[in-house]
């Protein structure tokens, strides 16, 4: 990945090499306030997801213990985010939810990219019928906005977090085909591809060694943003009752139940939603910041 950073060009003439390049990237990312905020939020979410089960104040509440004696308590020193309708600590469930949301978000993004990127590069590098078939198939999936299509697919497969993930992967991969195809199309006319071909490199080698690495920067930006959007989409399906089922500590499903306890027990809906918002915001801001580093042309002035 290191050799795709365009900043390499800037540092190539100067001695210092790799360390210098990374320092420049770090400086570019740290320069803007919103990128720093994005990075901090992503680190926070990833940290909570990794450390979740060991740092939660009430480990028994993870799987949904019932403790009616302390149900629906407002935020306090003992329960920072309050408790829910069966007496579970909401802070505990929000922290544990981070792991689920992050895993699901990354999983959807990886699966979609895993299907879409090879197809896109293949379409961009080939011509004729193969290219037509891939791109028309892609257009078909892009003919209806993702969320509605995902709901239709979940309605056919049946509700549940597994099917919700399948549905979201199915509506997500075409975006990667489009991006990878456009990138491959522009790369294939480059002299170094010609050179590799003349040197006798096989088609697969050209795709793997030259086209893919050179398409990486927009893909990385999209992947960062898509983790956030996938987290949001899963939570949305959870909220309307087609995704994770309670008592799974999934943020969207938590809000769906909490909705019934509004307005009096407002903290129940507030904190899971805040968790969704901040994670999605983090990945989007980070993606924005990465774009500034990886693609100097898109610099905002």
């Amino acid at each position: 990945m290191a050799d795709v950073l365009p900043v390499e060009a800037a540092s190539a003439g100067v001695s210092g090499g790799r360390g210098r390049k990374w320092r420049l990237a770090a400086w570019l990312l740290g320069r803007s306030f919103s990128s720093r905020l994005g990075l901090a939020l992503v680190v926070l979410v990833v940290g909570l997801a990794l450390a979740g089960p060991w740092i939660v104040p009430y480990p028994d509440d993870v799987a949904g213990a019932v403790n009616l004696a302390r149900k629906l308590q407002p935020p306090s020193a003992a329960h920072w985010f309050g408790t829910d309708e069966v007496g579970n600590d909401i802070l505990t469930r929000v922290i544990v939810g981070a792991r689920l949301s992050l895993l699901v978000g990354i999983g959807i993004m990886l699966a979609a990219a895993g299907i879409g990127v090879p197809l896109g590069i293949l379409a961009g590098m080939s011509s004729g019928r193969l290219r037509e078939t891939i791109m028309r198939l892609t257009d078909m999936f892009l003919s209806v906005p993702g969320l509605v299509l995902a709901i239709a697919i979940v309605a056919a497969l049946g509700p549940g977090i597994g099917n919700a993930m399948v549905a979201l992967v199915l509506v997500w991969w075409p975006g990667y085909v489009r991006l990878a195809e456009a990138k491959a199309l522009s790369i294939r006319e480059e002299p170094y591809i010609e050179a590799a071909r003349v040197a006798g490199a096989s088609r697969l080698r050209i795709l793997w060694r030259h086209v893919l690495p050179n398409s990486l920067s927009p893909l990385i930006v999209k992947m960062s943003m898509d983790i956030g959007q996938a987290i949001l989409a899963v939570a949305s399906l959870g909220f309307i009752g087609l995704g994770a089922k309670p008592p799974t500590p999934e943020w969207g499903a938590m809000i769906a139940i909490a909705r019934g306890y509004l307005p009096e027990w407002w903290w129940y809906a507030l904190f899971p939603g805040l968790a969704i918002y901040l994670s999605v915001l983090g990945f989007n801001l980070l993606g924005d910041g990465l774009r500034d580093i990886l693609d100097p042309r898109s610099h905002r002035g």
């Binding site: 909220f239 918002y277 915001l281 989007n284 905002r300």
Partner: peptide, 30 residues
């Protein structure tokens, strides 16, 4: 550009994509 107003609107704009609509709606209702 690059002033305080710009930074605030940037966070505001990204929030537009990051805010879960259903949660935002519940908050406004509340």
């Amino acid at each position: 550009k690059d002033g305080p107003i710009d930074h605030v609107t940037r966070i505001f704009a990204v929030s537009g994509i990051a805010l879960p609509p259903f949660w935002f709606g519940l908050l406004l209702q509340l």
